[in-house]
Design a protein around this nucleic acid. Structure first.
Length: 463
RNA sequence: GUAGGUAUAGCUCAGUUGGUUAGAGCAUCGGUUUGUGGUACCGAGGGUCGUGGGUUCGAGUCCCAUUACUUACCCCA
C-alpha cells in the first residue's frame, strides 16, 4: 500500500516545526503581552453549534462527522430517508451527522463563553491556538487543516479594543518582519450604503462588484452592478464609493462620509463615527510597521460580523494571501442564549504566514541549521556505549541536551555524519582509553577543534 | 461547482517526429579510510513508465476512459 495523507493536510518535519514554533512564539508572546489568556476547545462541536454562522458558502465547507454505529440504528427507515434527502441537496441531518470539525475558533469560543458565563471575568480576553478544518479545494496557501491563532475580547463594546488589536497586529507583524497592509472596513458603513441606495439585500453583490474595480475598471463595475439588478438610481448614488473604495486611512476625508450618512442612515452614521474614532485613536498607537487603509469592498463572508472588520494582506510579490482576519460581532452569543455580549477579535493564519515568510526568506538562518541536541556521544562497542549513559546523565542534570548514538558500530565516521546531518554542535568520543583517563575527545564540529576534557570541563564549557 | 496542467526509481525530474536493454541528480548501502563529519573518487541495489482499454509490426511517447495530485475562478486563514 502506498502511504498517503488526505489532500489539503500536511506533515510537518522537524525543521518545519522549528520554523512554525518561531512564529507561534512571537504571536503567543504578544497575545500575553496584551492581556489575553489561553483556552482550548474540542476539535469537534455539535453540528448545530456551527451551522448558520458562516454564511451559505461557509456552511458548505464544514467537515461533517458521520455518526458512529449507524448500522445499529433502531430507525433505519428514517436514516435512509435522510440519506436520500442529503443526496438531493445540502442539508444537515442529525440522524446522519450530529458532530462536525470546527470551522473556526470564534464560534466555539462564543459557545464556551455562554457555557462558562458564571465563572468568567468580563470583559473576557482569551487567546486560542488550534487547528481548524475546512472542506475546501486545496490550492496554493489553502489547506483543509490549518492553524488559527485567535485573540478575542468579549463583553466590551468599547472601540479601544479595536485600537489595542491594531497595536498588537503592528507589533506582531513588525517582529515577524512581514510586509503587510491592514484593511479596515465596517459592516455598519456597508449597511448604511445599502440602506441609502435602497438595496439593502444586495450589499454582498455590491461589494463583490466594487472589489473588481482594479481588474475590470469603473465601467465594468457598473455593468456588473446592473447585471445584479441594481437600479440605475442606486448605481448613481454608489459612484463616490467606487472611486474611493480603497484609501489609506491617513488620506481618508471623513466629512464626506459624514455628509453621506448624516440624517439618512442611522446605522451608516454610527459606522462613520466608529471610523472617526479609529482614525483619531490610531495616532496614539505609535504604529511602526503597519500600513492601514480603509477598504469599502472588504465585506468578509462570515455572517456574525456586525461592526469593524479587519483583514491583513501580506505582500510577497505575486503571492499576496490574506494572513489575518477579524472583526466585531455584537451578538454571536445571543443564539446560545446570552444577550448583550459584544466581542471583537482577530485570527492570525499561521500556515499562510509561514508560506509568505518562506517565500521572502524571512526565517532567521539559525533556525534551519540548529539542533535541539548540543552534544552527541560516540563510542566503539557495548562497554564504551554504556559508559556514555553515566556521562549524558551528568550533562542532562546540568540542562545540556545530548544524546548517545544508539547503534553499535565501529565506524566513527558514520556517527560523526549523523551529528553533522542533525546539526549537532559537539561530538564527544568515548573509547577505552578515555574511560581510563576520564578525559574525553570533545570536538566542536563547526571549527574542527578537538581537545581532551573531563566531563566537568565539558559541562563548564557548555553552561 | 467551473476551467486548465501533471502522473516515469524513495525524492526532484530528463526521455527527440512512436523504434532494440527506460536515464540523471539527490537519497540509501558498500568501498578508497576497521579512532573522526561536511569535500572527492569508485561501485551496488532500486522501475509491471498512475490504472484500464484502443491504434500500430512496434507505445513511456499517439487516442479514449478512469483515478489521484496540482493551479486558477468562486470563497477564504
Amino acid at each position: 500500500m502506498k502511504p498517503s495523507i488526505p489532500k489539503g493536510t500536511r506533515d510537518f518535519g522537524s525543521e518545519d516545526m522549528l520554523k512554525r514554533q518561531y512564529i507561534f512564539n512571537i504571536i503567543k508572546r504578544n497575545f500575553e503581552l496584551f492581556g489575553y489568556s489561553p483556552i482550548e476547545t474540542p476539535s469537534m462541536e455539535n453540528i448545530t453549534t456551527l451551522t448558520g454562522k458562516y454564511g451559505d458558502e461557509g456552511d458548505q465547507l464544514i467537515f461533517k462527522i458521520l455518526n458512529s454505529r449507524i448500522h445499529e440504528s433502531k430507525n433505519k427507515e428514517a436514516l435512509k430517508k435522510e440519506f436520500d434527502l442529503s443526496l438531493e441537496s445540502s442539508r444537515n441531518s442529525e440522524e446522519l451527522t450530529e458532530k462536525a470539525l470546527r470551522y473556526d475558533l470564534t464560534v466555539p469560543f462564543a459557545r464556551y463563553v455562554v457555557m462558562n458565563q458564571h465563572n468568567l471575568v468580563f470583559p473576557f480576553k482569551r487567546y486560542q491556538i488550534q487547528p481548524v478544518w475546512r472542506a475546501d479545494r486545496p490550492q496554493k496557501g489553502r489547506y483543509r487543516e490549518f492553524y488559527q491563532c485567535d485573540a478575542d475580547v468579549i463583553g466590551s463594546d468599547a472601540l479601544i479594543n479595536e485600537l489595542e488589536l491594531i497595536s498588537m497586529m503592528d507589533k506582531s507583524f513588525s517582529e515577524l518582519n512581514i510586509p503587510v497592509v491592514l484593511k479596515v472596513n465596517n459592516r455598519k458603513i456597508l449597511s448604511g450604503i445599502a440602506e441609502i441606495i435602497g438595496e439593502p439585500s444586495k450589499i454582498i453583490d455590491i461589494t463583490v462588484a466594487i472589489d473588481k474595480l482594479d481588474k475590470i475598471g469603473i465601467d465594468g463595475v457598473n455593468i456588473e452592478l446592473k447585471e445584479k439588478n441594481i437600479s440605475d438610481n442606486a448605481i448613481a448614488k454608489l459612484q463616490p464609493f467606487i472611486n474611493f473604495s480603497i484609501i489609506p486611512l491617513d488620506d481618508l476625508h471623513l466629512p464626506a462620509f459624514k455628509l453621506f450618512f448624516e440624517g439618512k442612515s442611522d446605522i451608516g452614521f454610527s459606522g462613520y463615527q466608529e471610523l472617526e474614532y479609529l482614525k483619531d485613536g490610531i495616532k496614539n498607537l505609535g504604529i511602526k510597521h503597519l500600513k492601514i487603509e480603509l477598504d469599502i469592498t472588504l465585506a468578509r463572508g462570515l455572517n456574525y460580523y456586525t461592526g469593524t472588520i479587519f483583514e491583513v494582506k501580506a505582500n510577497a510579490g505575486t503571492f499576496t494571501p490574506s494572513i489575518l482576519g477579524g472583526g466585531r460581532y455584537d451578538d454571536l452569543t445571543g443564539i446560545f442564549g446570552l444577550k448583550n455580549m459584544s466581542g471583537v477579535g482577530i485570527s492570525f493564519g499561521i500556515d499562510r504566514i509561514y508560506d509568505v515568510m518562506e517565500e521572502l526568506n524571512l526565517f532567521p538562518e539559525s533556525i534551519s541549521n540548529s539542533s535541539t541536541t548540543k552534544v552527541l556521544f560516540t563510542h566503539f562497542d557495548a562497554t564504551t556505549q554504556s559508559h556514555c549513559l553515566q556521562l549524558v546523565a551528568q550533562l542532562r542534570a546540568n540542562n545540556i541536551a545530548c544524546e548517545i548514538y544508539p547503534d553499535l558500530t565501529k565506524k566513527l565516521g558514520k556517527q560523526f555524519e549523523y551529528a553533522d546531518k542533525k546539526h549537532i554542535s559537539f561530538v564527544c568520543t568515548v573509547g577505552s582509553e578515555e574511560i581510563e583517563k576520564k578525559t574525553y575527545a570533545f570536538k566542536e564540529l563547526k571549527t574542527g577543534q578537538q581537545q581532551q576534557l573531563s566531563i566537568e570541563q565539558i559541562i563548564e564549557k557548555l553552561t
